[in-house]
Design a protein around this nucleic acid. Sequence first.
DNA 1: TATACTGTGTGACACAGGTCACATAAAATA
DNA 2: TATTTTATGTGACCTGTGTCACACAGTATA
Lengths: 203, 203
Amino acid sequence: MSNYLGFEKELSDLLSEIEPVELSSDTQILKEHSFIKEIPIVVSGSVKVYKTDESGKEIILYRILPGQSCILSIASCLNDKESKANAKIDANAKLIIVPGNLVKEWIDKYPSWRKFVHNLYYERLEEVLTLVDNIAFKQVDSRLLLKLRELQLLEGNSIKITHQELASEIATAREVVSRLLKNLEIQGKIKLERGEIRILQKL
Amino acid sequence: MSNYLGFEKELSDLLSEIEPVELSSDTQILKEHSFIKEIPIVVSGSVKVYKTDESGKEIILYRILPGQSCILSIASCLNDKESKANAKIDANAKLIIVPGNLVKEWIDKYPSWRKFVHNLYYERLEEVLTLVDNIAFKQVDSRLLLKLRELQLLEGNSIKITHQELASEIATAREVVSRLLKNLEIQGKIKLERGEIRILQKL
DNA sequence: TATACTGTGTGACACAGGTCACATAAAATA
DNA sequence: TATTTTATGTGACCTGTGTCACACAGTATA
């Protein structure tokens, strides 16, 4: 992990001294309304950031991929505010945990870290804006297609996901997803397996 | 405007040398997909940032108030990316226009500017997350109530707004807003006037 | 004053999509 | 192997809310 993520050597060295922790799927690493003292940087696997309502329905805001960090944690730290969303491990993941106060110092100390943080902000804001676009303007069926295409880019033509998870990602009910997927299968565009969707034709 | 917004004297002086421009309501100052060369800082009035779909339906993401700037513009500048939303003058406004390259330099030069930008990012991200919450989980009627309460905080018990505008803000149709508002009026909670809503009871 | 424009009120209607209630079936666990 | 849990399929139903169509009342403009 030398010269990690294009950081200055000094910072890169600091980071590589930290022993990554390994966490398994569904471990919650960030709770809404809690205060953040430590910042995770994803080394491998991925983390999903989501919101829930009272009834337990959840919607995924975005995923944190390797080489990225959790901007909501950083923001909470920098501004001393509580967290605005939840996060849990998506695929088994390795994380570097950085103390919040360090992150704060680095902002003033390392231009590359500033760039990193800015980039995170920018990308997340963009993703969330796209999300707003989708849920405000698009019908459920379009949202499903968009999500499938997105997952296809990440995982290829064999997507491992349950209907329930898909439903959360696009903020609808499981049955609705099942129905729509079934239609796509009848159209011959996909093949459904338990916990898996295989994409046969361009969506 | 001395020591504007808690900036270092040097920066504050720079800013106060710039002559504010005056723009009237509905002037578009930011178009989605365009590249940004200049950053506006709102001195008075307000600017609304919104998204539109093909059919022209629009949803307000957030408002830029005096002392704030447009984070999407800044982000576009810093990252050399196109704008992800539209913005237009809400109430008649005075703006300071800052060249994008300066904004970029200031990030490295002035800690107070960095703080300013971080704060913007944080607040906007937070607002947009709340928006996601609302449109993903809340029914139209709750969204309307939330919006009315928000406007009440800003404008007091007499809110100047048309049903159409309200509809855009909460991503629904005008008729729906008219109906719901009428109900609230029948319940005695508000009084409807042309282009104005007067709040009589706690919503 | 006449005319056009904008904002609002309302009924009728359609329909996407959420909810409920089961039936299977595959995996996991005992 | 038996039992429980998890994932999926599907029909029936309900309802929020978007759309259409039109009436009407203020406001601005000619």
